[in-house]
């Protein structure tokens, strides 16, 4: 029997464990920070070497909006600051 055929790279973004990550615009970030009265550095972090961050080509200093599936609320939004 032949070895399992090798195919091209599969996008990790389609994996069921990976929620939607989107880079936020400056204005959205400002609104977010004002809403919670916090500074950017107080947001949870995500590494720029994170596979999803590399895939969506976000850069250090960007804020990503993550649309999580939640067991209790159905859908929740979460935010992370891209760091080194």
């Amino acid at each position: 029997m032949k070895k399992g055929k090798v195919r091209g790279k599969v996008s990790i973004l389609e994996h069921e464990l990976v929620p939607l990550h989107e880079v936020m615009t400056e204005r959205e970030v400002e609104e977010l920070l004002n809403k919670y009265k916090i500074k950017k550095e107080q947001l949870p972090k995500i590494k720029s070497s994170d596979p999803v961050i590399r895939e969506i080509k976000a850069r250090e200093g960007d804020v990503v909006r993550i649309t999580r599936k939640s067991r209790t609320a159905g859908k929740t939004l979460f935010y992370r600051l891209v760091t080194k």
Binding site: V6, V10, I12, E14, E16, L17, P51
Partner: peptide, 28 residues
């Protein structure tokens, strides 16, 4: 395993959490 023909990678999981963090990121 993601590169093997016939594998539905989007629904394939492992119990190794460190591996998931490496391959699929922190949210996964």
């Amino acid at each position: 395993i993601s590169r093997i023909e016939g594998v539905d990678f989007s629904r394939t999981t492992t119990n190794n959490i460190a591996e998931i963090a490496d391959v699929l990121g922190i949210e996964a």
